[in-house]
Simulated scan of single mutants.
Amino acid sequence: MPKSKASKTRTRIDALRAMIDKECTAPTCQESGACRHEGEKDAARHMLARLLEKLKDAAEDERDERAKMWAEIYERGYDSHGNTYRRGAKYRAGQSMKERAAGIRADIKMARKAGQTPLVQEGPGLATQALETYRFDPIGEAPEQIKFRVRIGPGYGSIRIGIDNIPQEWGWIAEEVVEYRGEKYTRWRRTQALKDLEAELKSVGQAYNADHGSNLSTDLFMQAFFVFVESDDPERLARHAEYESKRRDRRT
C-alpha cells in the first residue's frame, strides 16, 4: 500500500532528526576536532523547520475546517447520519449542574419580576395617550400564588422544575370519564395557560442544555442533562395530602 502524504512527511522528519542527532564518527573529523559535516546538519535543521511549519499550518487549517463543519452541524441541528446536535444559548462547557440550576432559578425569578411591571407606561410626551407595550410571558403572567422550585435530579443527570400552588380553575379542567366497567371518575386535563407555562419553563431549562449527537432510533442519548417540568393535578395533591395526614397520625 502506497504511503500517504502525511506518512511520507513524518518519515522525512524522522530521517532529518536522526541526521541532526547523530554523532559524527568520521576519523578525519575526530582527528581534526572540527566536524566537516556540520554544514549538512545545518541544512537538515533548516529543512526540518520548514517541514514542521508546514505541518503546523496544515493542522491549523484542519482545525478551522472542523470548527466550521461543526458550527454548521449545530446550526442545522443534525448531521448526515441523523444524529441531533444543539447548543442552548446559555450552555457553557464545563459548567456544573449547580451553576445551571442556579441560572435557571435566576431566569425564572427575573421573569416573575418583569411580569409585575405594568404593561401601560406614560411618558412626558404622551399627555393624552398611553404607550402600550405588548408582552406575553407565561412565567411572568402566571398567577401570583404559583411557586416554582428547581432541583437537581438523582445522579446529577437531570434538572426538575416544579410548579406548586396552581389555582385549580386556572390550571386544570375536570373531565368526567366513564371507564369500561361503567364506573365514573374525573380526569384532569391541563388548561392551555398551564401548557404554555410548562413549555416556557422547559425552554428556560433547555437554554442551559446541549445535545452532542443523540439518536432516538438507536436509543442514543447524548444530552448534557435532561429537563423535566412537573406539576400535580388536584387528585394527586389530594392523595399526597391524605398520605401526609396518615403519616402524621402514625407518628403521634
Rank of each mutant, 00 (worst) to 15 (best):
R149Q: 08
R151Q: 09
S158F: 06
I159K: 08
R160Q: 03
G162V: 00
G162W: 04
G162R: 01
I163R: 03
I163Y: 06
I166A: 07
P167W: 13
E169A: 13
W170Y: 11
W170I: 04
W172F: 15
I173G: 10
A174F: 05
V178L: 09
E179H: 11
Y180T: 15
Y180P: 02
E183D: 09
E183A: 15
K184C: 13
R187D: 07
R190F: 15
A193F: 09
L194N: 01
L194K: 01
K195S: 06
D196G: 04
A199M: 08
A199N: 06
E200R: 15
E200A: 15
K202V: 10
K202C: 06
G205Y: 06
A207K: 14
Y208R: 10
N209R: 02
D211H: 00
H212N: 11
L216K: 05
S217H: 02
T218Q: 06
T218N: 00
D219W: 01
D219K: 00
L220E: 11
F221R: 07
M222Q: 14
M222N: 14
F225A: 05
F226T: 15
F226V: 12
V227N: 06
F228A: 08
S231M: 13
D233M: 12
D233L: 14
E235M: 05
A238C: 01
R239F: 12
A241E: 03
E242I: 02
Y243S: 07
Y243D: 10
Y243V: 05
S245N: 11
R248E: 14
R248V: 08
R248C: 06
R248G: 03
R248A: 14
D249E: 14
